[in-house]
Design a protein around this nucleic acid. Structure first.
Length: 684
RNA sequence: AGCGGGAUGGGAUAGCCAGGAGAUUCCGCCGGGCUCAUAACCCGGAGAUCGGUAGUUCAAAUCUACCUCCCGCUACCA
């Protein structure tokens, strides 16, 4: 049983998203090649506040909104060769029924609690404000935060009712807290089970390590209801809807059930997998590890379903070294890739083999071209073409000969590598096993020089070419998970019947057909101009998006990009002077004073912050400053500094800061005076 | 601060979980070969004390501890 994390139905897919789906598809195809009975399922995630909010903004029904994206995803995946056995969505009856079954089970087993919590409420519009309907101040770090997560500060997940100074994101009205009764899943009681589960869990190491910390810190009970109109109603509660993360993973089961309903129980029995002894592998992005290694197995355990055997959590992707940005249109979109006319197999190969699955992977059109041209065209494609063309010209197909021991052993080795890759949850190893076999093919044909044997020693030539065709066939079989379309094409070129998708790795050593025609080149090179063109498109698009909504953010990002590329010269990335001029009058409002640091002590738990008392003539002030980087705290007292005296007070790490110390740059180079102006002198 | 990931020849990557001949592959560089092949392919070479320190061990890129630096978590972004 292989699943991919459900795509959230609220926006376009880019190639970063595709990494998980390609990984899952490769893995599930590889399992089938090894002769395992496999089902590969997924579906769109339709519920939750972000969809509800966006639908409101666009003035349409959330269901219609999500369904539109769902249909697009359903169409897009197969275009990349990602072929689910079933692709459903969470707002279907199959999922509703299973969700209710599981929730009722949680209730009957005594794992659901009711608690009164304070929920943000819009007093004007008279409506509750769950999750992202509200924003405010993080109770942990004091930064501005979204209702469900401290996105700008400490990154913590926030439970309903935690956020301070809540404001509605819809109306802008200040929100108030009202007592509401919500349902909680007592995951804390399952800590021991989860601890054992993590010990058993296979897959990538990040999926085991990350949740460990959570367990050690102590699990909080999990609020599984929301005050929302969009989603599945909580059984027996009119006003409450189930939290999206409850019904989302259940779609894995629902989708499997739909698969069984479609193909029949003899073909695939969803209950055997999920209730009995199925081997379940979840392939996800690393941002949803907790859901798959804590909440989800906890639900399965209580409801008496089979626990996952492995979780493979992928790293993120960057584009030319910086993050994808949907808002800045800084992305290579899935649709765009196809519109450019590239074969899906090329991207599949890149995504599957460019690095370890849990590593972050960078995409650039240059790298893409390099890997396609060198490995797919130069090594794999070229080997196949040269050997099959030679076979066709001289023998009209496969010569009459036996495969040599050496080649047979080498193919067996490739099959072993392939299987080892699957067992190690390494889609990369699955891909490289075949490329290395093709590389061996090139070495072999080069070493044996069949072109010198033809006419001289036809029997020896036949032997060599027979070996070469066998290798080509093995490549077709073993490369199918990575490059399903090219492999199928190759399969046909070899004159094989049926589909390469249906064969197992044994076929790699089975004799190829006697006759086949002239081969065609499977992969085409990508030339330099093409890469330039694609980069220009990307750049102009990003520039356009930046121009459309103010350019300060974009300027900052460009800066940091250049700084990375040219880290050696610190002066190359001076921030441009702001375009906005301020009036003299505005400047006059700044009350800058000469001050002297009297005492300084570091603030515990902080990298940069120092608590200072500063004499500014009229009074002594406590000022908190982020200047630890360049200064020994003990040396600070006695230093003459410049203070912004009329800045509003702030609280940092629980310390009041009454004023601001001026300093230059990241290193916090302190501003001072060079004469002997007394403290309190106004600076103009 | 916290969490996760990373630091391997000029660049990019593998190996690390299951420690054992000075280490993979791709690009780049130097030299050679081949001519069946998509100027593709093959062979040879230069180039790394595998971030630092200390430890465990007969043996460490691989294990342990500490340290330094980088990256994501500031776009629901997998």
């Amino acid at each position: 049983m292989v699943t991919c994390g459900l795509p959230y139905a609220n926006g376009d897919l880019h190639i970063g998203h595709l990494r998980t789906y390609v990984g899952g598809d490769v893995y599930s195809r590889a399992l089938e090649s090894l002769g395992q009975e496999t089902a590969f399922v997924c579906g769109s995630d339709m519920h939750g506040t972000p969809i509800a909010v966006q639908a409101i903004e666009e003035g349409i029904d959330p269901e219609a909104f999500a369904l539109e994206w769902h249909e697009q995803y359903e169409e897009t995946f197969p275009k990349f060769g990602v072929e689910f056995d079933n692709y459903g969505h969470t707002h279907e009856d199959a999922n509703r029924e299973l969700t209710y079954e599981i929730v009722e089970r949680l209730e009957s087993e005594g794992y659901v609690d009711e608690k009164k919590i304070k929920v943000a409420w819009d007093p004007v519009d008279e409506q509750p404000l769950p999750d992202r309907y509200v924003e405010g101040t993080c109770p942990y770090c004091g930064e501005h935060a979204r209702g469900d997560e401290c996105d700008e500060g400490c990154g913590r997940h926030l439970e309903p009712g935690e956020i301070e100074d809540p404001v509605s994101t819809i109306s802008g009205n200040p929100a108030e807290y009202r007592d509401r009764t919500h349902k909680f899943f007592k995951v804390s009681e399952l800590a021991d089970y989860l601890d054992g589960f993590l010990d058993r869990l296979e897959g990538t190491s990040n999926a085991r390590n990350q949740p460990r910390q959570w367990l050690e810190d102590g699990l909080q009970d999990w609020c599984i209801t929301r005050d929302l109109d969009w989603g599945f109603d909580y059984p027996g509660e009119e006003d409450l809807v189930l939290y999206v993360w409850v019904d989302a993973p259940i779609e894995y089961i629902a989708s499997t059930k739909q698969y069984t309903d479609r193909v029949g129980i003899d073909e695939y029995d969803w209950e055997e997998t999920w209730r009995d002894d199925g081997e379940i592998v979840h392939i996800i992005g690393r941002d949803i590890i907790q859901h798959h290694t804590i909440f989800w197995p906890a639900m399965l355990e209580v409801a008496d379903f089979q626990e996952p055997r492995a979780v493979m959590a992928s790293g993120f992707m960057t584009l030319d070294g910086a993050g994808f940005s949907t808002s800045r249109n800084r992305a290579v979109w899935a649709r765009e890739y196809l519109d450019e006319g590239f074969q899906p197999d090329l991207l599949r190969y890149y995504l599957a083999t460019n690095g370890g699955f849990q590593q972050d992977v960078d995409f650039s059109w240059e790298k893409f071209r390099d890997r396609v041209n060198n490995e797919l065209v130069g090594t794999v494609g070229n080997y196949l073409y040269r050997s099959l063309l030679f076979a066709h010209r001289n023998f009209e197909g496969t010569p009459e000969a036996e495969v040599s021991d050496e080649v047979e052993r080498r193919i067996e080795e490739a099959i072993d590598d392939f299987a080892a890759g699957v067992n190690d949850y390494s889609v990369r190893a699955v891909g490289t096993a075949t490329v290395e076999l093709a590389r061996f093919g090139n070495e072999y044909i080069q070493r044996e020089e069949p072109w010198n044997l033809v006419g001289e020693d036809d029997e020896a030539a036949a032997q060599v070419i027979c070996d070469c065709v066998q290798i080509a066939k093995a490549v077709a079989v073993l490369f199918e998970p990575i490059a399903p379309s090219a492999s199928e094409e190759l399969w046909e070129q070899l004159g094989e019947d049926g589909s390469v998708h249906d064969v197992t790795t044994d076929a790699a050593l089975a004799a190829p057909p006697r006759d086949f025609g002239a081969p065609e080149e499977l992969y085409e090179k990508i030339d330099e101009e093409r890469v330039e063109e694609l980069n220009e498109k990307l750049e102009s698009r990003v520039a356009e998006a930046a121009g459309a909504d103010g350019n300060d953010g974009e300027a900052a990002e460009t800066e940091s990009d250049e700084a990375e590329a040219d880290a050696g010269s610190a002066m190359s990335d001076i921030e441009p002077v702001a375009d906005d001029r301020i009036s003299f009058d505005e400047f006059r409002h700044l009350d800058l004073r000469v001050g002297e640091i009297l005492t300084a002590e570091p603030i515990e738990d902080s990298d940069k912050l120092v608590k200072l008392t500063v004499d500014i003539g009229v009074e002594e002030r406590q000022v908190v400053a982020g200047i630890k980087q360049l200064h020994a705290v003990d040396d600070l007292p006695g230093t003459t500094v410049v203070i912004v005296a009329n800045l509003e007070k702030a609280e940092l790490f629980g310390q009041e800061s009454n004023g601001m110390l001026l300093a230059a740059g990241e290193g916090a180079d302190l501003l001072t005076t060079h004469g002997d102006s007394p403290v309190g002198t106004k600076i103009r």
